[in-house]
Design a protein around this nucleic acid. Sequence first.
DNA 1: CTGAAAGCGCTTACAG
DNA 2: CTGAAAGCGCTTACAG
Lengths: 321, 321
Amino acid sequence: MRRPTLEDVARLAGVSRSTVSRVINRQPGVAPSHRRLVQEAIVELGYRPHLGARALASGRADTVDLVIVDDDPDALSANPHYARVIAGAVKALASNDIRLQIRLVPASGAVGAGGLKLGALLVNVRPELAQQLRRGYGWVVSMGRSAPRVASIEPDNADGGRLAVDHLYRDGRRRIAVIGGPESNPCAVDRREGGLRSIREAGLEPVVGQGDFTLATAERVTRRLIDEHPDVDAVFAACDMTAAGALRALTAAGRRVPDDVAVVGFDDGVIAASAGLTSVRQTVEENAASATRMVLARDGGRVFVPVSLTVRQSSGQHGDA
Amino acid sequence: MRRPTLEDVARLAGVSRSTVSRVINRQPGVAPSHRRLVQEAIVELGYRPHLGARALASGRADTVDLVIVDDDPDALSANPHYARVIAGAVKALASNDIRLQIRLVPASGAVGAGGLKLGALLVNVRPELAQQLRRGYGWVVSMGRSAPRVASIEPDNADGGRLAVDHLYRDGRRRIAVIGGPESNPCAVDRREGGLRSIREAGLEPVVGQGDFTLATAERVTRRLIDEHPDVDAVFAACDMTAAGALRALTAAGRRVPDDVAVVGFDDGVIAASAGLTSVRQTVEENAASATRMVLARDGGRVFVPVSLTVRQSSGQHGDA
DNA sequence: CTGAAAGCGCTTACAG
DNA sequence: CTGAAAGCGCTTACAG
C-alpha cells in the first residue's frame, strides 16, 4: 500500500532512475523503447511524482505565494474580489504541478517567504512592501498599480470611471454622485478621478462622497449625499459593495432605482450579478491568471487591461430587465 | 544570498544538525545552553525550515487538500460559499506550517492525491467518491452530509428551514413558497424538508418550486410561482443566491419586499449582507476551520452545527431597517 | 542513449 | 544530552 516511487518504476521498467526521471520530465535523449517501458510502468503502478522531493532535488521551487494584505481576518470570505483572484491563480496553476499558497496578512504584519518560492502575486500591497517582497521572493507581480520597478497588471480603472459616467449621461442623468474608495488605494482613486473628469467634461458639477469599499460606509455616505443634494439622479460607486450600500440607502429613503436614481458599480462580481447592478466589468480571474503566468515566466512590465460595462436593472430605461 | 539551511545554523551555533532539528521541533532533551545558542543562530541567520525537505525526511505530509466538486470552472469566484470554506481552512492552517491545496474538479473528473497528503476536506462530494477519496487520502472530512463511514461536519439544515418558516409565520405570512436546491444535494433537501414540515405543522399548504442554487433558475421559478399562486406572501429559498433571484423576480413583477412578499435565504454570506436579505446563518468559515482541524487530528464522527437567523430588510416589519 | 553517484534540506533511530 | 550516519524521493552533472 506504499505510495510508489520513481525507484519502483525504474525496477518494474528495468531501467535506471535517471531514465525514468528523463521520461517524466519530458527530456529528450531516451530510446523510444525505454520511454514506452517506463510509461507503462508508470501507469501500472499509478505512479505520481512527489512534488516536494522534486523541488528539493532540483532546487526549483514548486510554489507561488498569493500575498493579500487586509486587516480583516475574514477578508477572504467577506470580499468577493479575493475569491476571484484565487480562482484565476488556481486555474493558471492547475495543470502545472505548481502550488498556490494563500497568505492573508494584516497591513502591519511581516511577510516571510518561508520556503523556496517561484515568486508571488501581490494584492493590496503598498509600494514599499512590494519593493521589499520583490527582493524576498525573487519575482512578484502586483494586481493593480504598485511601485515603479514592480511588475503589475491592472484594469484601466480611469477608463472604467469614464464608461460608467458616460453611460449615466447618455441615460439622461445630470446630477451624478461619485462615491470613491479608500484614498490609499490607487485603483479606487483612478476610478473616481476617471468618473469625475467625465462629469466635468460634460459641463456638470459632480457630487462627491468618500467611501472605503464597505457596505456600512456606503450606506451612511449615500444617506448624507441625497440628504444634502436631493437632486442627485445617479450614483457611480468605486466598487460593487459600495454600490450595494448605495442601493440600500436609496431604497430605504424611498427612491426608486433606476427610475429616480441610477446606480453603477465597479467589479461586476457576484454582488453585481445578484443585485441586478450595472457595473464596470474587470476581468479579475483572467488578470490573476495572467499575473500568475507572469510570475512563472518571470515576465516584467506593466500590463493594462481594458474594462467594459455590464448593464443591468440599476440603470437604463425603467423595466428593461 | 543563499537561503540559510539547518546546516548553517548548526555551524554558527557550534552544534550538530540533530540538535538544531530538536530545537526547531520543540523536542525535549536539549541542554538549555545549547537551545539558546541555536535560537540565537536562527534569528541571526533568519533561518526558516524548508517545509518540503521536512515533509520528505519525516514521511509526514505537509499538505491538506481541499477537493471541491463543481462543473463550473469559475465556481471558485461565482459561488461565495467556496470562498468561505477556503477562508476557514486557510485560517486553521495559517499557524501550522501546513499548506492548503485547492482542487476544483468536475463531477466527472478523477481526483488523484498527487503527493503525500495529511488528508482532505471535501465539498460537494458524492458519497461514492467520498468513500473512494477516504482511502486515497487516508483521512477526509466532508463539509455536509456524506457517506456513512466518512467524517463530516454539517449545519443543521432542517432546523434552518424551520427557523426561516417560523420567522415568516410569526411575521404574519400564511402563503409561504419554498424554493429548493438541487435534488442531489443533501443540504438543499434537508433545508426544504425542514421548511415544509414547519409549514404543514402550522396547518398551511406550501407552494413548492425547484431551484438549483443559480440566480437565473431562481428568477424563472419565482416568476412562475407568483404567476400560478398570486397570493404568495413569503419565499424561503434554499440559498442566498436563490433568494437573490427571487428578490429580482418579485420586484420585477411589481411586488414590494417585504410589504407584499417577504424573502428569507440560507447561508447569510456576502450576498445576503449586500442585498439586505434575511437569511439563515451557517458558520461556514468556522465549520471549515473545524473540519480542517479534524483532518489534522484525524478525528472522525459526524458533527452537527446549529444555525441561527439573521433578520434584515427582506422580511419583518416594513421599514425596520 | 544510459546509469552510478552525489546531493537537495531535513528527520530519526542508534550508539555513546 | 549529543552527534554521526542513513535515508526520504527526487534531479543532475558526469563518465561511459
